[in-house]
Every structure is written in structure tokens, then in C-alpha cells.
Design a protein around this nucleic acid. Structure first.
Length: 426
DNA sequence: TCTGGGGTCCTAGGACCC
DNA sequence: TCTGGGGTCCTAGGACCC
């Protein structure tokens, strides 16, 4: 029987903040989404205060003030670097790894990997990076996820590690797991399952495959099989090719003018284009969208989107910017207060494999975009590139729409000017 | 006053072709 | 009353995840 482990960093963003700021240990800490809008990571102490995942910051102001909760804007530069450190340790320990997200990885386990191995691995990651993790072991991805959930919820008993594959009563665990605790079952599917009389993981496991197939399609059938220990989801050691790249942001304040929307969109295009160049890809399709603020029920709502197939695949910032601007002008209507704009570059193809048509203008030999990318990368901060296009606005002009990020911690690990300081007292 | 961003996969339905 | 059928490709939309 093959066994997989799911390693998951605990409260990852909060844990990263604590590594370089030990004064936060034992204190309630939360990390905010982009634009400082929602709470997307909570320390155990913050969870204990009843602060829900995804809650808008403004709804939690009272409890934050009352209990002195420490609040941070998200610092993806720091989290990305810490993630790479954790993953590199995992990679050394097992023959196969799939990095599933910034804070999770599936491991293919060798036969001699025991619960003790998992405890030792957990201790090593903690000692080397300062990041606590939980580890769940099972015979399929879904079961490893389930084991991980159990390890996390019962940390005092499990020590952060749970091996469902070696556990004598796996069905007991499943009976205690509600369907929405399963990987792949969200609010809607949980409701649907309830409608056909299934409320726990165990009931799902024992359900009639044909009935599940009928009412939930292949997704349901796959989950059912995985629950029964029949693997349907392979370990993907090579990340599959990207299908699309999206860049969008909410504005710090609502925006009405086309000029400001164009400026913001130009920045998103610049980021998306840089990203696909970095991966050696060309976009074949572009989609541009606008959103008004759906939470302001009294405001007139207008959230259009438009997509086109490009005349020729491209990753050239200037070219993509002018296409994006045309699309934006087609959907823009004055008189609305917009909250967000964004661009999606889709149907990506590899630069190497792409065959230009006979009459296509060859690309310039000196690629300005690449030179700019290199300079921006070396000079540091992804939020404030040193070289931008005029269409991306000036420091002054972007004030009108730029997102908020007011409680940033330093880039402790990726910027020489922001290294943590150790004060030694005698 | 204030409510994230970036992905994946699946399905249904329309356009088009033979 | 009668009005082909089946395949492919594309797009939109929904669901979920972190």
C-alpha cells in the first residue's frame, strides 16, 4: 500500500511573523489580506478570541482593541521565502514531494517511514525554520488530508502527527468528521450531501457509488473512491504548466475615472506580463474586468468583463498594455464607483514551442522587457519596482487608487536593509 | 469609513463542421 | 404535421482550494 503524508504549516503567515519577532509568541496575532481587508491568518490565541477566518477587519476592531491583538498586512515576500526553506527541508527527507501551496506539501513516503519519522521531521522543520507543522498520513491524498485535520485538531494528543493508515479505527475518525471537513467539500456540496442524507465522512464513504456519481458527477465519485483508499489523485512532482495568470487588486478607495482605471490596469498588466515572461510563456488570450463594490447595496452595480484571442501570442508588456486599454475602454461606463479591475492572461503557450506564422514581424533582438525585469528583480521590492512605464502612473497619481498595506513587517530574509537586528545586552 | 487574490477543475450550451 | 446527428472547440459560470 502506498502511503502519502500531507505536511501543513500551522497558521503559516502568523508563524512567519513570529519567527523574526519573538515578542509575538503567546500573543494573539492576525495577518490581513491584500488591501488590509480581511483576516486570513490567525494565531491560536486569536482563534481562541473567536476571530473567524476571512472576517473583515473592520468587524473585529472591538475585539482587537480589547485584547491587544497584533495586526499585520500580508508580507508575501517573507512568506514565500520561509515557504521555500520549509519545502527544501521536506525535499531532502523523502523520495517524492508535491508542493501543493505556499504552506502545504504532499510527500510520497518510503516503506520505512514511521510515525516516529514524522515526529522527527516535524521537530527538524521547527528547529531549522521556526515554523510548526502538522503531518497527516494516509493511503490517498484525501485520507492524508483527513489525517492532517485530525492531527491539527487534537494537537495535545497527537503531537501534531497522525497516521490514519496505521490507526486501528479509521472509521471512528471518519464518523467524527463532518462532510465539510473533507478536502473538496465546501458549503454547497456539504448542503447537497445533507440533502441526500449524508452528514459525515463515514456516511459518504459507505454511500452507493452509482448514486454519488449521478448526483455529484465525477468529483463526487473520485472523492468516494479516495475515501475508500483507492487513489484517484496522483502525486504531482512536476508542477503542471500554468493555464493562466491573473493580476488584480481592489482599490484603496473607490474609483470613477477612466484615467485612474487605466493606470491601475497598466500596473496589473505589467505584473502579469512579467510573470509569464519569467515562466517562458506567451499569452494567446486576454481578459479584462471591472467590478463595482458589491457590498454597497445602494450603489449601482456594474461588473463587466471582456476577453479576446490575441492576433499573435505575446508577453510584451507594451503590446499587452495597449490591448488591455482597448478592452477596458470597451467595457468602461462612467457614473459607477469601481472597486477593482484586473487582467487575466490565458491560453498560455511555451515561447520555445510557439511557431510564428510566415509573415509575423520578428521580435526585437534586444528585449527591453527582460532587461527591466532583471533590474526590478535585483533592486528588490515587488510592490515598488524601480522601473515602470509612464502609463503605470506616478507616486502622486496612484494615491487615488493604490491598495492599503499599512502594517507591513520588514522583508527580514530577502533585503539586506531589512535584516532583523539582535540586540545584545551585558 | 472598512469586505483579498490567484488558481484549478468540471459542466452546460452555443457555434460550427461534416 | 414536418424540422438529422454527432463530434469538436470555445466560453461562461459554478464550485472548490489556499
Amino acid at each position: 500500500m502506498t502511503r502519502l503524508a500531507l505536511v501543513d504549516c500551522n497558521n503559516f503567515f502568523c508563524s512567519c511573523e513570529r519567527v523574526f519577532n519573538p515578542a509575538l509568541v503567546g500573543k494573539p496575532v492576525v495577518v490581513l489580506s491584500n488591501n488590509d481587508g480581511c483576516i486570513i491568518s490567525r494565531s491560536e490565541e486569536a482563534k481562541a478570541l473567536g476571530i473567524p477566518m476571512g472576517a473583515p477587519l473592520h468587524e473585529q476592531e472591538a475585539v482587537i482593541r480589547k485584547h491587544g491583538v497584533r495586526v499585520f498586512s500580508s508580507n508575501y515576500t517573507l512568506y514565500g521565502d520561509m515557504s521555500a526553506r520549509v519545502m527544501s527541508i521536506l525535499r531532502e527527507e523523502v523520495p517524492a514531494i508535491e508542493i501543493y501551496s505556499i504552506d502545504e506539501a504532499f510527500l510520497g513516503l518510503p516503506a520505512n517511514f514511521t510515525k516516529e519519522s514524522a515526529l522527527a521531521l516535524r521537530a527538524k522543520v521547527l528547529q531549522w525554520t521556526g515554523i510548526p507543522v502538522c503531518i497527516g498520513i494516509g493511503s490517498t491524498k484525501l485520507l492524508a488530508k483527513l489525517a492532517n485535520r485530525h492531527a491539527k485538531k487534537n494537537r495535545e494528543i497527537t503531537g501534531g502527527v497522525f497516521d490514519l493508515a496505521g490507526y486501528p479505527d479509521p472509521e471512528g475518525i471518519m464518523a467524527a468528521t463532518p462532510t465539510d471537513g473533507l478536502w473538496g467539500v465546501g458549503r454547497n456540496l456539504a448542503l447537497h450531501l445533507k440533502g441526500i442524507g449524508i452528514t459525515t465522512a463515514l456516511e459518504f464513504k459507505q454511500a452507493d457509488p452509482a448514486a454519488i456519481r449521478r448526483s455529484m458527477g465525477v468529483i463526487g465519485e473520485r472523492m468516494l473512491r479516495e475515501l475508500n483508499g483507492i487513489p484517484c489523485l496522483e502525486l504531482e512532482e512536476m508542477p503542471p504548466d500554468k493555464k493562466g495568470v491573473m493580476a488584480s487588486r481592489s482599490f484603496g478607495a473607490l474609483v470613477e475615472s477612466l484615467e485612474e482605471l487605466e493606470e491601475a490596469l497598466a500596473n496589473h498588466v505589467a505584473r502579469a506580463a512579467e510573470k509569464i515572461r519569467h515562466h517562458g510563456l506567451l499569452a494567446t488570450r486576454m481578459e479584462v474586468f471591472l467590478r463595482t463594490n458589491r457590498f454597497r447595496k445602494d450603489d449601482p452595480q456594474y461588473s463587466p468583463g471582456i476577453g479576446i484571442t490575441l492576433d499573435r501570442p505575446s508577453n510584451a508588456t507594451g503590446e499587452l498594455m495597449s490591448t488591455a486599454r482597448e478592452l477596458l475602454r470597451r467595457i468602461y461606463r462612467p457614473g459607477y464607483r469601481y472597486k477593482k479591475t484586473g487582467v487575466q492572461l490565458a491560453n498560455l503557450v511555451s515561447e520555445e514551442e510557439y511557431q510564428p506564422t510566415l509573415f509575423e514581424t520578428p521580435r526585437p533582438r534586444i528585449d527591453i522587457d527582460r532587461i527591466v525585469d532583471e533590474i526590478n528583480r535585483r533592486m528588490g521590492d515587488p510592490k515598488n519596482p524601480v522601473i515602470t512605464r509612464a502609463s503605470q502612473g506616478t507616486e502622486r497619481s496612484v494615491k487615488g487608487w493604490k491598495m492599503r498595506s499599512e502594517r507591513h513587517s520588514p522583508h527580514y530574509t530577502t533585503d539586506w536593509n531589512q535584516l532583523p537586528e539582535a540586540k545584545v545586552g551585558f
